[in-house]
Design a protein around this nucleic acid. Structure first.
Lengths: 410, 410
DNA sequence: CCGCTTTGTTCGGAAGCGGCACAAAGAGAG
DNA sequence: CTCTCTTTGTGCCGCTTCCGAACAAAGCGG
């Protein structure tokens, strides 16, 4: 209940969007807080809340909320409507395919896996995942307001093509957004406004992890959030600025994997040497610890298990972890010097490295950054399950958060 | 007259601010264009233009504008009022101190140097520069709406302290913004609203160069603009996102000097090796060309002259230039991978390197970036004189551009 | 039971903007 | 020169949105 930074109201889109976003991200538990955060009068906040309730997006609970002991008339509790509309979120990655219905607040209402194997081609995979989503919609009877897709690849804008699908036998340049949208149309999933078909949104999985963590996870409240994570191979990054994903002018920003973190390191396919990408991923860890890497699509799990079980006992594992922590610290310090975020979130192997020895990571960052700045940036581990699925849903919710009336018809 | 991207109107601040910004940056020469760019009706655009004219900020010239040959009723010409209010811009750097009055449109109305030498302490220097500005204001009788200061140092936010003043005998951490504001108060410079004193704004010079180039120079029309430039020593960077400076959460973003561009390079004070900072600055160039560096505060001029006069004739100079171009290209490719700007602007020695052999720079960037992305980013040289002074003025104009009525009283 | 505090609502009224009709100013055709 | 066509600028009305102020509601403490 500390209305610090009043989100200045931009009347143009109405106050509805900002208000919904506050409830959606859990920053407006009551109308009183909403009033303060929006910087409007109680009258306006009340009207806005009533409107959102009428749209079925939020619920107002007027029962005495087990009063917090404060004086005055108790507030009514605002919360996301658990029975309200949902969006369709789809996830494509090497471990399998999955569809989900996600409500406001990042709550997963229903989810189910696809059954195809990774060998299937893009159109088949997306058609199946959309089909699973359509089935979930029929089963739950929910209204669907949008659709978002998470892909393990950079997505070029404005074309919406996947440039480097990881661990999938897809050619480069698959127009995933277009295919996704076509599948949605063919599955006859009714959009919010009558018979107009849904338009699909698609983005890189790490971008979506960052978005999800920013709205509902370890990044809540941060203004500029940097997210760095590993998959099985390589390192990805994402940046949320002022609540929006920063994808750059062609969607390819935050390719952080090719910062040099070891001038004497191994060559990288980018033409450089000692890149973050090849020096801090699970393969690099297994290699440094003297273990056989094993199959590529199992490296992250193997690395995580090795780190968690043998860090305390096996000196080779500990040394390998420290080596990676030092390199990661160098890379993060470099990113802090360029981006100056106010929080950093790590995922995959990186978050495990943070957990086993965060002090060392902080020390390296503090030493290798200018003005000791990066020593003061909070570094946290990812906090959400299914974060890229939730992030795909955020992508789909965005138009609703921008202007609820425009989407829901008024 | 191609209203491509309609700057969506945000009613909250009124249409006044966006409209003024369009005229200010020369993107709204007529009311018709203003109508299209704002996405409002002609009636609204007309009312807005009338309001801005009444405020004395713009002028409407209804004379037949030497008609452009098109059909229909000729437009009235909208332009910035050359006799309108100004802001006070001040510049502090090793070559001397300077104050200026800058009108809308980035036009320097009056300017004069200070007389103190670099040995003077911060408070003396700022007091003198502000005094010069006050004198200019008295002489011209202009109304002053704000004040901005350019410093050759990173400026920490929110404190407004200069962390690493270059070529000035200032200690680290001088609270320049506070001192500047105090000097403005002591000089009794009347603010826009009655007797309330002016608040000073301050920022790093390269940030201000980027801002000025974005509004009035080679960066006009870019959405995400990256600026990289050298002074006498070292390399600085700045980023404009969506028309705003991105200074990061503590004002220290875009410290691009410590990207590794030569794994075998010389050691850098940051603890790394082969940093952009020490491998592409004027000293590195003079060194590579086998010349004596000479005094530190003359290196940029010496390097520029050497490059321009002897690149075509002296193989040693040409080889040195190519070496620096290759390293710069590597650094820029790294930045493109992270930031994905839609335009890059180079200043200082870097812009001269671009001019002598831009093809080579583009080739290196294309080769060393992912998806060949950075091969397609336009790279341009700085186009403005006194750009950091104009940028300091932009900083001061910003509140007016955000909400003219709030500043000018309504 | 009566103040006190905080929250929510109701009711004008002001401001900003869209829509429409109309006026203005040139180009081109005859 | 005049008439029509095209584009630009303006006056007026009404809608939407929000603020301000008064009032009502709901708990707490005496």
């Amino acid at each position: 209940m500390t209305p610090t930074r009043t989100t200045r109201l931009e009347r143009g889109r109405g106050a509805l969007g900002p208000a919904l976003e506050l409830v959606h991200t859990g920053r407006a538990p009551t109308r009183a807080v909403l009033t303060a955060e929006l910087g409007v009068t109680r009258a306006t906040a009340g009207a806005v809340a009533a409107e959102l309730e009428a749209l079925g997006l939020i619920t107002v609970d007027s029962r005495p909320t087990a009063a917090a002991g404060s004086q005055g008339r108790p507030s009514h509790r605002l919360s996301v409507n658990p029975d309200g509309p949902v969006v369709l979120a789809a996830q494509v990655h090497a471990d399998g395919f999955r569809a989900a219905l996600v409500g406001l607040g990042g709550r997963i209402v229903a989810t189910a896996p696809g059954s195809l194997t990774v060998e299937a081609d893009p159109a088949q995979v997306l058609a199946e995942v959309v089909g699973v989503g359509a089935r979930l919609l029929r089963e739950t009877g929910r209204r669907c307001l949008g659709a978002g897709l998470s892909v393990p690849s950079s997505v070029a804008e404005p074309e919406g093509t996947a440039l480097n699908p990881l661990h999938l036998p897809w050619p480069a340049g698959v127009p995933v957004r277009e295919i996704f949208t076509r599948c949605l149309a063919e599955a006859r999933i009714p959009g919010p406004s009558g018979d107009a078909p849904l338009t699909g949104h698609a983005a890189n999985d790490i971008n979506l992890v960052a978005l999800a963590e920013h709205r509902h996870g370890a990044g809540r409240g941060a203004r500029d959030l940097l997210c760095v994570a590993t998959g099985h191979r390589g390192v990805g990054g994402a940046l949320v600025l002022d609540g929006r994903l920063h994808t750059g002018s062609s969607g390819l920003a935050l390719e952080v994997g090719h910062l040099t973190v070891d001038p004497d390191g191994r060559p990288c396919h980018c033409g450089g040497r000692g890149c973050l990408d090849v020096e801090t991923d699970p393969l690099a860890f297994l290699d440094a610890a003297g273990r056989e890497p094993g199959p590529e699509t199992n490296m992250l799990r193997r690395a995580l298990e090795l780190l968690r079980t043998e860090y305390a006992t096996d000196p080779a594992v500990r040394d390998a972890a420290h080596l990676l922590i030092d390199r990661l610290g160098l890379g993060l310090a470099g990113l802090v010097n360029i981006l100056d975020p106010d929080r950093i979130i790590l995922g995959g192997l990186h978050s495990a490295l943070l957990e086993v020895n965060g002090e060392r990571l902080h020390a390296v960052m503090a030493e290798r950054s200018l003005w000791g700045r990066s020593g003061t940036v909070p570094v946290l581990a990812c906090a959400l399950e299914h974060s890229s699925l939730v992030g795909a849903a955020e992508l789909a919710w965005q138009p609703v958060l921008d202007d609820p009336m425009a989407v829901l018809g008024g």
